[in-house]
């Protein structure tokens, strides 16, 4: 591997300052949680880091804390810890299921929540060194190329799909993203945190240079709220979602009071389908409702030449998710 300098950060502000110093010295800097994907990108040459700021040494960044306002998930919590936490399994089920669906046990044991949410796209052009928008270039090679795993919503000028399973589950629970940077801390909602390529084709979120995602806050969840994350892959394990759907439904019996439905694997950001959410409000969960919701989920899809298969997959995933949240 290329020459690297590792700096162990004692706090998030320490990490931010270390990054500023290294950048001022002309070095490329990367923050590292689990580091699995980062090391891969460095080995491949798709991340130019000279200096790695190791965040595993940040104290108290790996905890789950509750108060009257909700739950705060430390950015450095491992996906395996998130997937096994009794409170998360019970009250934030979709988040636990999404975390459990990522990669392999070996990856989940080190991969962090913040790292999963901010990892770079897995588009095969970007990952193989093409000078595309994501690499700072001015072209998306998927448009006229191999676009079987690219966006059916929100694409243009880049058509990547957001790689995170956990992010749509967080968005479905109205998560707030806590960011630490040179100017201190700020908290963003999902619409502020995730960025479509029409706004910035190079990055997937609004983290500025030198900023990092330090924690996720989930507001209190109402009683009788149920959630699920359904993931369809092109093999049974160890890959990204062809289509995923995080669904949170608050209901009385089978009568839906409100619902959030957020897709993964189909858009450059976690993709909320408000048409489905509006449709579900006030309806009974049954086969007819679920089927119609599935159809509605793709009514505004704009498939590319080779990713039309994602439309029926999306409909099926949404239908299954809703039915799985029926009472009794």
């Amino acid at each position: 591997m290329k020459a690297l300098t590792n700096i162990n950060a004692s706090s998030f502000s320490d990490a931010v300052q270390a990054a500023q110093r290294a950048r001022a010295a002309g070095q490329a800097v990367a923050f590292s949680g689990g580091g699995t994907d980062l090391l891969q990108q460095i080995k491949d040459g798709t991340d130019p880091a000279d200096v790695i700021i190791n965040l595993r040494t940040v104290a108290d960044a790996r905890t789950i804390t509750s108060d009257s306002g909700g739950v705060t998930l430390g950015g450095l919590i491992a996906l395996s810890e998130l997937a096994a936490d009794p409170q998360v399994i019970t009250s934030l089920t979709a988040i636990a299921q999404a975390a459990a669906s990522v990669g392999t046990p070996q990856i989940r044991n080190v991969a962090t929540l913040a790292g999963n949410v901010t990892q770079r796209p897995w588009c095969w052009y970007y990952r193989n060194g093409f000078n595309c928008y994501k690499a700072g270039g001015d072209e998306c090679f998927s448009v006229n190329g191999e676009n079987g795993q690219h966006a059916i919503f929100g694409g243009g000028p880049s058509y990547i799909v957001h790689p995170s399973d956990v992010a749509p589950a967080l968005v479905a629970f109205d998560a707030r993203f806590q960011v630490t940077g040179p100017n201190g801390e700020r908290e963003l909602n999902a619409e502020e945190f995730f960025v479509l390529p029409i706004t910035n084709p190079e990055r997937e979120n609004s983290l500025a240079e030198g900023e990092l995602l330090s924690a996720i806050r989930i507001p209190s969840v109402a009683a009788n709220t149920f959630s699920t994350y359904q993931k369809i892959m092109d093999r049974e394990a160890w890959t990204h979602a062809e289509v995923g759907v995080a669904t949170v439904i608050q209901r009385d019996g089978n009568a839906v009071n409100n619902a959030t439905v957020v897709l993964s694997g189909v858009a450059p950001i976690p993709w909320r389908v408000e048409a489905v959410e509006d449709f579900l409000a006030g309806r009974q969960i049954n086969a007819a409702t679920a089927s119609e919701a599935g159809e509605l989920a793709v009514s505004e899809a704009q498939p590319l030449a080779k990713n039309g298969h994602k439309l029926p997959m999306t409909s099926a995933a949404v239908e299954r998710a809703i039915l799985s949240l029926a009472a009794g």
Binding site: L4, N6, T36, N54, Q106, V110
Partner: peptide
Amino acid sequence: QPVYSCSQLAVWAD
């Protein structure tokens, strides 16, 4: 816990 030792820097395992 099982981990991929190819994708861990040794300094992180201190």
